[in-house]
Design a protein around this nucleic acid. Sequence first.
DNA 1: TTATGATATGTGATAATGCACATAAATGTA
DNA 2: TACATTTATGTGCATTATCACATATCATAA
Lengths: 181, 181
Amino acid sequence: MALRYALLGLLSKEPSTGYELAQRFKETMTHFWTAHHTQIYRELGKMEKEELVSSKIIHQEEYPDKKIYSIESKGYEDLIQWLARDTVGQPKLKDEQLMRVSLFHLISSKEAITYLNKTKKLHTDGLAFMERWKRLNFPDEKVPKQELGEYLTLEYGMRYMKNWIEWCDWAIEVLEKFDEE
Amino acid sequence: MALRYALLGLLSKEPSTGYELAQRFKETMTHFWTAHHTQIYRELGKMEKEELVSSKIIHQEEYPDKKIYSIESKGYEDLIQWLARDTVGQPKLKDEQLMRVSLFHLISSKEAITYLNKTKKLHTDGLAFMERWKRLNFPDEKVPKQELGEYLTLEYGMRYMKNWIEWCDWAIEVLEKFDEE
DNA sequence: TTATGATATGTGATAATGCACATAAATGTA
DNA sequence: TACATTTATGTGCATTATCACATATCATAA
C-alpha cells in the first residue's frame, strides 16, 4: 500500500509518466525504497481505475507514446489521510550484502575481505552519485518547500553510504586481526 | 531465494526450531532482513522436501511439540555454492519512515518535527536493545569464529541506529530554520 | 555493421511476503 | 477472575514484487 502513496506523493509535485516515476525511484529513493517499473505501471493502472489519478496520452513521432499521469482530488485526499495516520511502519529491509556478511563463519577471512571490498566499492560509487546529484539539484543549499523531502532523504542517503564505508573499513580491520590470532 | 540461505546459514551453526529461527531474525537481523514466522515455517517445509534439511519432533509435556531442523549435506553444499557466487545483490529496502519524510512538502514543519521525534525514539530504543545484546553476547569482545558474522552485523546495526539518530537531529534543525524564514 | 542503451509501456506467470486466523497450555498482569 | 503474553506450528487467502518477454525507434559505441 505504501508504494501507492510514494507515487501519489511524487505526482503531487508534478504530473509524470510511469517511466519518469521509475527514474525517480532509481535516482533519489534507492536507499529507502525500490520498485520495479512493471510494478509502478500496474499500480498506476489500478489507481486510475479507482480515480485517484488520471492520464493523458501524448503522441510522439520519434519515441513511443507517453502517458502522463496527474493526481486527482480523491488521490490527494487519500494521500493526506495516510500521512496523518500516526502508526509508524517498521522498515522492512532485505540487504543481501549484509546477509552474506552474517554468514562469514563459513568462509575464510581472505574471501571475506575481498567481498567487503566489493561491497565498499558499490557504496563508494553510490555516494559519488548522490554527491553529484546534490551539486546539480541543490547547488546553493537553497531548498524550495517542494523539494524539502528530497533534500532531507538525500542527506540521509549520503550519511547511509558514508556509514557503510566506515563500517567496512572497521570490519576489514577486525578480519585482519582475526587472522593473526 | 535469499531467505533460504539465511535459514541454512543459521542452521549451519546449530540445529534449531522454526520458532527459534524467527526469534533470531527479530533479535539480530531486523536491521538488514525481516521474515514473518509463517514464511519461515513454509520455507523450512519446502527445504525438507528437497532434502536440504531434516527434522526431528520433540515431544513436550508443558508446551507444544517442537520440530528441530538440522542442515543436511545437500543443504550445506547449496549454501557454500551460493556464497561463492560473485554476483552482489543490491539491497532492496522498504523504509516507510523515510518514505514519509520524502513527503514532507505536504505537511507543516511542526508536524514533520513531531514525526521525526517519533522515529528517533524508535531508533534510540533499537540501539539500546542492540547494546544490551552486545553486552550479553560479546561481553569481553571475544568473538568465536561461529559468531563472527553476528558480531560484524551487530556493529553495523548499532552504527545504523546511531546514524539515523544523528541524521534526525540534523533534520529537525533544518526544519526549525526552515520555519523561521 | 552489429550490438547495446535510452526512450516508453505493458502482459503473463511465478515467487515472495504478509494477514487473519486456528490450536493449545502455561505463566504473568490488572 | 479475566485478559494478555509466551511458547510452538501451521493453513488459506490476498497482496506485493519480480522475471521473462513483447513492441518500437533513435542514438551511440565497438
